[in-house]
């Protein structure tokens, strides 16, 4: 054995040309793909599962709608008919899956991404000391960091992009325009599972997790802290969300409801002298007895897109800030 060491060294100088060939992925990209193997697989499996689920929801809804149309049971007026009601009831299963399982799951996805992908990403490198292994290589630590973040970042972008698109499509085609269309877009589990919200929130949670992991340097505390901060951030944004876009302010006939699918922010009555009193104040008093009309402040369903864009822009700015801090803190 020891002889091999000695005599085998004769050819060592020529070893540079003897590198294994046919490697498709090289350098840092290979390392980051290898390091993110579990993350990439998990995201891929998640996308496939949710996509299959959504496809099933779509096909099942279409099937029920087809049956209803053929039997003349499509319109709500016919549903008092027992036979039509029986034909309608299979729609409940796909609708239940969408509204009660997929929407909450997609709502929770950014938090899970922050906790399980973002927080451990650097925390584990510090906790296991492998950051020092990386620092001992010839590559610049910031270049490594860029690659280390780009691969999961793009994977999260792609996965949540696909999920958000499919969720929005099924929502639009089968829920909103379905026979029992009722799922106002601004609801707690509806809004975050629509449009650009899942993508923007996931990227933000990922970046926040990475930053927390770099600051805390221990995996479990970083995961807990990231989860708490994402939840707090969600609460704050939800509180501020009505003001991301100008409200519609209307005076309507007394006690008239706000439009279907809109988001009512505040309402009250207009008194004879033209002054406005919020409904909350009127309750159980005689103060509002002389009201002449109602006033409502709300976001119509059409405000969904601009509000989501403003929110996404805000989150992406915060994401960029978090990443800038992470890069600055990584000594070159």
């Amino acid at each position: 054995m020891s002889m091999n060491v000695l005599t085998g060294r004769a050819g060592a100088t020529a070893s540079a040309s003897r590198r294994p060939t046919a490697r498709r992925v090289r350098g840092l990209l290979w390392l980051t793909l290898r390091q993110n193997r579990a993350v990439l697989w998990t995201l891929a499996v998640l996308v496939v599962l949710v996509a299959a689920d959504l496809l099933w929801i779509h096909i099942a809804s279409r099937h029920v709608v087809g049956v209803l149309r053929r039997t003349g049971c499509y319109y709500p007026e016919t549903w008092s008919n027992g036979q039509c009601w029986t034909l309608l009831s299979p729609i409940n299963r796909p609708t239940y899956w969408y509204v009660s399982i997929l929407q909450p799951a997609v709502t929770a996805l950014p938090l899970l991404i922050g906790v399980f992908i973002g927080a451990p990403l650097l925390a584990q490198e510090y906790e296991r000391g492998t950051i020092r292994l990386i620092r001992a290589q010839s590559v610049s630590p910031r270049r490594w960091l860029a690659s280390r973040l780009a691969v999961p970042g793009l994977a999260v972008l792609a996965a949540t992009g696909v999920l958000a698109a499919l969720m929005s499509w099924v929502w639009w085609v089968d829920i909103v325009h379905g026979p029992i269309a009722f799922d106002p877009p601004f609801q707690f589990f509806t809004y975050p599972a629509l449009g650009v919200a899942p993508v923007a929130w996931s990227l933000f949670a990922l970046a926040l997790g990475v930053l927390i992991g770099q600051l805390v340097r221990r995996t479990l505390p970083a995961m807990f802290l990231t989860g708490a901060l994402v939840a707090i951030m969600y609460g704050l944004v939800r509180w501020a969300r009505p003001y991301f876009y100008p409200l519609v302010d209307q005076v309507v006939p007394l006690n008239e409801a706000h439009p279907t699918n809109s988001w009512l922010i505040d309402r009250g009555v207009v008194m004879a002298d033209g002054s406005r009193v919020s409904t909350d104040v009127c309750l159980g008093t005689v103060r509002c007895d002389g009201a002449t009309a109602s006033w409502i402040q709300y976001h119509p369903a059409a405000h969904l897109v601009p509000i989501q864009l403003v929110e996404a822009a805000l989150l992406l700015v915060l994401t960029a800030v978090a990443l800038a801090v992470v890069f600055r803190r990584m000594r070159p």
Binding site: S15, A16, R18, L28, L31, Q137, V139
Partner: peptide, 8 residues
Amino acid sequence: ELNPAWDD
């Protein structure tokens, strides 16, 4: 992958 002068 990370060292140009690597002697495998």
